[in-house]
Amino acid sequence: MKRFNTILATVAALGLSAASAMAGPTEDLARSCNACHGLNGVSVGPSMPSIAGLPEKYLKNVLLQWKSGERYSATMGRHFTGYTDEELSKLATYFSKLPYVAVVQPADDKVIARGKEATERCETCHGATGGAPDDDETPKINGQWAQYLEMELMKYRTDSVKMPHKKMRGNAKKLADEDVAAVAKFYAAQPK
């Protein structure tokens, strides 16, 4: 818990020092995202992803897929049906231009080693430590919140909800149940 508080304090300090863009309709829209995703898209709630600095194409894809229902979401689809495609596109561009902040979450060495071993299939697209995605449609996942990553894997591993990425679904399902949390913690612990 103490460790978690240190993480939060550091994230908070970052938010404090960062200036914020406040003018114009896209910024007005983006400000409303802060309530759940943190100031300037850097989340302090482990179940909510940081969204700043993710690749533009990736953001655009998921935002539009949630809106169309092509990608399952528990909550976001109900938000994005209220936005125009153009607004979503602009939001994706906006957040992609903010700095990506890896919130490094230390974990037990054994868990990290186990996670690393289980990520063999992930490497081609996400890079060895999640920080060097293969293309603009693949998110960075290093220093992303472990709890969020684990919950995303749960989505991919549940057949009865719609997820669009065949390869990702296939690989997520190949993970052993007991490796899911370790994989999430491995990426969460990576600074780069």
């Binding site: 759940c36 995703h37 179940s47 709890q147």
Partner: peptide, 23 residues
């Protein structure tokens, strides 16, 4: 899955909205 995700999002929402007001 849906209910589990939203129970956790609730906590994440709370931490972020508290920070959005007070941090």
């Amino acid at each position: 899955l849906q209910r589990k995700l939203e129970s956790e999002y609730c906590i994440g929402w709370f931490k972020n909205i508290m920070a959005d007001a007070f941090a």
